[in-house]
Design a protein around this nucleic acid. Structure first.
Length: 494
RNA sequence: GCCCCCAUCGUCUAGAGGACCAGGACACAGGCCUUUCAAGCCUGGUGCAGGGGUUCGAAUCCCCUUGGGGGCACCA
């Protein structure tokens, strides 16, 4: 089995593309086949310079390594369509000689005007009027002599219908008349998608075409091309599209998410930057349109490979279940070895705290804090907000926060002072602090939550922070006491 | 406008005529635990789009309607 992912380098690697790549990869791994990466760079006007790199980075990040393609080579190359031009020209000419394609000299303006008129008149079929299809040899010679530019168009059968099989659905026959002689080779000498795609899939010996649903309606054209070229038709499976989280519209259009108005992430690189784990993304993406088991949504890539079957893919487009991704990412974070988590956290912390990775890595607070926030993270980028207090000299907060709920500033101050003197002498370990501090709350006649809350704010500057003892241990006795003293000062001034 | 695809809880899904008064997960609600926030545990509600058929029997098959999606480029 040979399958391929064929992105065009006209933008960053999209979530939907990633899912398509994932299914291709799974199928190849399941069947012991080959997963090929081919770059469809035939639109010179829309090329985005760093998108090729982004495609490869994203694929590698998801650990969807291709067996043939850019950077790895292979026996069926080149894997860039821009390097295969002679092949397209050769077959274009062959089709012309066989009377299955023809040169068209119509200007883009004429075509556009034609289409506009058709739409205005609400004509059922929009498309080329086949003007040049019936040109005489003499007329062609004249046009060529005048130096007119031309494209190559496919001479679609004028009538009849085209049938084909899709693995995931039952397809009605398509009327050939709807395909008005599509362009195969553009005036710039580059092929269009349809032509390059068919030729490459043939010569790369692709056996199964697994691609997005948006291609379904162009299959009849492809089928006729295969027929015209005399080639065997591969197996088709058009994968469901991923819809906007609201369930309305394709994900590809950049939109806002929900009422909050937060930006909806659509590129793999954005999810990566937001602190999602590749193993979570893999699990999540594989679980859309396909199910590993009726009992659980969690599975490893190994398990996915064992059970993957094209026939099990759900053909219906689905809304992106983002809340599930968040939960799943948290689940995978919780399952990480703390040291592993710390390492993955470093780049995120370094950026948020504006500190070099090296110094963070050697900061003794890190190994203390990471296990404490592990079950509190949905994404890696949330860590800094939780533990930054241990990595900065000064913390600032609203002094009002030091007043515990139900207590006065005076009482809060008294509690803080008592706790401060106690902390000056206690062993700085969880076991060392626990009983004495609870006892203190008891003696002061305040709730444990009240006392701990005051200390939490005094030491971290936050109402929401990692567990108190660990936070103080990460800070160390000296800094803890200093911050308590500062907090006392703030309370006195109230 | 024309063509095609799709249709199970709010969402992602399991279900390929009887094992389904429809199972799982996320989200949501309530509770337990608890030093904040989480995590964890328990409990709960909500669904086969509608209408016709076929059949002893339909979420599962057929038709229509409706809804959603995709396509109709010298973009892929």
């Amino acid at each position: 089995m040979r399958v391929r992912m064929a992105p065009s380098p006209t933008g960053y690697f999209h979530l939907g593309s990633a899912r398509t790549a994932l299914f291709n990869w799974l199928y190849a791994r399941r069947t012991g086949g080959r997963f090929i990466l081919r770059i469809e760079d035939t639109d010179r006007t829309r090329l985005v310079p760093d998108s090729l790199q982004d495609i490869m980075d994203s694929l590698r990040w998801l650990d969807l390594q291709w067996d043939e393609g850019p950077a790895v080579g292979g026996a069926y190359g080149p894997y860039f369509q821009s390097e295969r031009l002679p092949l397209y020209h050769e077959w274009g000419e062959r089709l012309i000689s066989a009377g299955l394609a023809y040169r068209c000299y119509c200007s883009e303006e004429r075509i556009e005007a034609l289409r506009e008129g058709q739409r205005a008149r609400k004509e059922p079929i929009i498309g080329y009027d086949r003007h040049c299809r019936t040109l005489t040899a003499a007329q062609r010679a004249d046009l060529e002599a005048s130096g007119a530019t031309s494209v190559i168009r496919f001479a679609m059968p004028l009538e009849g219908e085209t049938r084909f099989v899709d693995l995931l659905r039952k397809i009605k026959p398509f009327d050939n008349d709807h395909y008005r002689d599509p362009i195969l080779v553009k005036t710039d000498g580059f092929p269009t998608y349809h032509f390059a795609n068919v030729i490459d899939d043939h010569f790369m010996e692709i056996t199964h075409i697994l691609r997005g649903d948006e291609w379904l309606s162009s299959v009849p054209l492809h089928v006729n091309l295969y027929d015209a070229l005399g080639w065997e038709i591969p197996v088709f499976a058009h994968l469901p599209l991923i819809l906007d989280p609201s369930g309305v519209g394709k994900l590809s259009k950049r939109k806002k998410k929900g009422e909050g108005g937060e930006e909806l992430l659509t590129f793999i690189r954005e999810y990566r930057a937001a602190g999602y784990l590749p193993e979570a993304m893999f699990n999540f993406l594989a679980g859309m349109g396909w199910a590993y088991s009726p009992d659980t949504d969690l599975f490893t890539r190994r398990q996915a490979i064992e059970r993957f079957d094209l026939a099990d893919i759900n053909p219906a487009a689905g809304a992106l279940p983002l809340s599930k991704l968040e939960w799943m990412n948290g689940h995978y974070i919780r399952g990480l070895d703390p040291e592993d988590l710390a390492e993955r956290l470093l780049p995120f912390l370094a950026e948020s705290l504006a500190q070099p990775i090296e110094s963070l890595w050697h900061n003794p607070a890190l190994p203390v804090l990471v296990p404490l926030i592990q079950e509190r993270l949905k994404t890696l980028d949330e860590a800094a907000a939780l533990i930054d207090f241990a990595f900065v000299e000064e913390i600032s907060y609203d002094p009002q926060m030091l007043v515990a709920k139900g207590l006065t500033p005076v009482l809060s101050l008294a509690a803080l002072q008592a706790a401060g003197s106690l902390l000056a002498e206690l062993p700085f370990t969880e076991e060392g602090m626990d009983v004495p501090l609870r006892g203190l709350a008891d003696r002061l006649g305040v709730k444990v939550g009240q006392l701990f809350g005051i200390l939490r704010v005094a030491t971290t500057g936050k109402n929401i922070a990692p567990p108190l003892f660990g936070s103080m241990i990460a800070l160390g006795r000296a800094r803890t006491l200093a911050r308590c003293a500062q907090a006392e000062e703030l309370l006195r001034r109230m």
